[in-house]
Amino acid sequence: MKHIRTLNTRDYRKSVKQGGCGECQTSCQSACKTSCTVGNQSCETLTSKR
């Protein structure tokens, strides 16, 4: 397209069906300890397929 470029993103809607396994990292165990940051995490199921 000429006027708008779309980045590759995971479709949240599909993840409703695929997700919820809970194997992903707990937010506060990474590096924050004082704030909840979820968007920066990766899905354990998707990344293990790489």
Partner: peptide, 20 residues
């Protein structure tokens, strides 16, 4: 850390809704 964002393989909606 706070600029990390995984657009392609980020968390599922269940995780995004329920948080830490």
């Amino acid at each position: 850390f706070h600029f990390m964002i995984d657009l392609e393989q980020g968390p599922c909606v269940a995780k995004r809704l329920s948080g830490c």
